[in-house]
Design a binder for these strands. Structure first.
Lengths: 224, 224
DNA sequence: CACTAAAGCGGAGGTGCCTCCGTTTGTTTA
DNA sequence: TAAACAAACGGAGGCACCTCCGCTTTAGTG
C-alpha cells in the first residue's frame, strides 16, 4: 500500500550489499516491557526521551526530516549529547517518530469507533489518514531509505494501518451503516489516489473529496 | 536490477587491464554530455572536473560514499568551491562516478573482446564484474537513494551493463566457443548467486568459482 | 535520611558541509 | 599582442553533525 515501498527492483533477489553499522533502534517505552532483561529507563531519562520524540515529531512535520537535531534538542530542553545517546542517528529518531505516528493513527481508529457511529468513524479516520500522508511528504526520502533498509518497519507499520482500517470497515458493515459487500483491501486500493502528487496546492482538498465520494459509495445500498 | 555500486580500482589484481593513470581521453566528453547544447567547459575547468571525478572514484572506493568532499577537493588540488560548482551535491558526484564506472565496465567488454578468444573474454569480464560488485558495499545506501530517486540512472546503467554482457555472450556463441542454446539473461540470472553475502571473507573466491563453473557449463557441448 | 554506584546529562570542540564573493585565468575581440 | 570580460577559482566563515568526558541526578541500600 505505501508507495514508498520500493519492493523489488527487478527479478533478481535483491541483496543488501551491506553498508554502515546501524545499531537497532530501541523500542519505545511500552515496547521495552516485553523486551527481555532490559531495565526500564530512569525517570528523567524517560521524560527527556519522550520530549525529544514529541519535539522531533513537530519539527519533522514543519521542517522536514532535515530539521536540525541541535534545534530539536534545544527545544526539548536537553543537550545535544542527550539526543544522541537516545538516538544515535537521525534515522533512529525518524523511525521512532514514524512508529509513534502509526501508533497514533491506529489508536485513533479505536477512539473514533467508540465515539461515533461506525460510518462516521470510518470517514473521520480516512480523513485523518489523508492528513497523515500529507505530513509525510518531507519525510519521503528518509523513509524510503528506512523502509528499504529496515524491512521490519515496513511490514510492521503497513500491517498495523491496514488492520486498523479493516476493523473500522467491518464494524461499519456489520452495523449496516455501509454496504456489506466491500472488502477492506478494496477500499484501501480506492484510497490509492491520494498518493498521487501530494505536493500540489489543492491536494488536500482533492483528497478530502475523494474520501467523501468513497463514503457515498460505501453508504449506497446500506441496510440502515 | 543492477543496484550495486562502483568498481574499485585495483582491490583485486585479477584482471590486469585496469587503466594505469592514463584515463581515456574521451572521458572528458562526460562534462559536455551532462549539459548538451552548452558551451564546452573552459580548459582549466574541464581539467579540474576530470581530476575531481578521478579522485572521487578512488576515495569512494576506499572510504565509502561518505568520504570527505573537502578531502576530495584537496587531493584533486582544487578549492572546495570548485568542487561544489561542478557537483552541487554529493549525489551529483556519486552519480557521475557511478556512470563512469559503468562505462568502464562496458568498455572493458569491448576491449576484452578484441584481445581474447570470445569465451575467455566472457570469463574475464565476468570476473571483473564480480570485482565490481565486491568493492562497492559502502555505496549501497547512497546508491539506493540515487537509484530510486533517479530512475533514469537505473535504467540507463542496467541497460548498458546487460547489453555489454549480451554482446559478449552472443559473440562467444557465434564463434562456437560456448554452446549456442543459452540466453544472456539466463547467464545473468545464474550470476545471481554472487549477490549473496558479499561481505563474508571467502565471498570473492566463491564467486570466482561460480564464474568458472558457469563457464564450464557454457563450454560444454560447444562446437569449437 | 545519608551514602554511593550507576545512569544520565550537556556542551565544548573538532570536523565536514556548503555559500558567498573578491581574485585569478582563459578566451575572445580588435 | 593587448585589452576586456566572462568563466572559473578558492577559501574564509557560518552552521550542523557527532564524540567525548567531567559533572549532576537518580535509585537503590543500610
Amino acid at each position: 500500500m505505501f508507495s514508498w515501498g520500493l519492493a523489488s527492483h527487478g527479478s533478481t533477489p535483491h541483496i543488501a550489499l551491506v553498508e554502515k553499522k546501524v545499531p537497532e533502534p530501541e523500542m519505545t517505552t511500552e515496547a521495552t516491557r516485553d523486551a527481555p532483561a532490559q531495565r526500564p529507563l530512569r525517570a528523567d531519562a524517560q521524560r527527556n526521551r519522550d520530549r525529544l520524540v514529541e519535539v522531533a515529531a513537530q519539527m519533522f512535520a514543519s521542517d522536514g526530516v532535515d530539521a536540525s537535531l541541535e534545534e530539536i534538542a534545544r527545544r526539548a530542553g536537553v543537550g545535544i549529547g542527550t539526543l544522541y545517546r537516545h538516538f544515535p542517528t537521525r534515522e533512529h529518531l525518524v523511525e521512532v517518530v514514524y512508529r509513534r505516528e502509526v501508533e497514533g493513527l491506529c489508536h485513533a481508529a479505536e477512539e473514533l469507533a467508540n465515539e461515533h457511529p461506525a460510518d462516521v468513524a470510518l470517514e473521520l479516520w480516512m480523513q485523518r489518514f489523508v492528513d497523515y500522508i500529507a505530513t509525510k511528504r518531507g519525510l519521503a526520502t528518509s523513509l524510503r531509505v528506512l523502509l528499504t533498509t529496515n524491512s521490519t518497519l515496513f511490514s510492521d507499520t503497513s500491517g498495523r494501518v491496514s488492520g486498523a482500517m479493516r476493523g473500522l470497515i467491518e464494524a461499519a458493515a456489520a452495523s449496516g451503516k455501509i454496504r456489506a459487500d466491500v472488502d477492506a483491501s478494496d477500499v484501501m486500493h480506492a484510497l490509492g489516489g491520494i498518493y498521487s502528487a501530494p505536493n500540489t496546492p489543492d491536494w488536500r482538498e482533492r483528497s478530502g473529496r475523494l474520501v467523501k465520494l468513497l463514503m457515498d459509495g460505501l453508504r449506497f445500498g446500506a441496510r440502515g
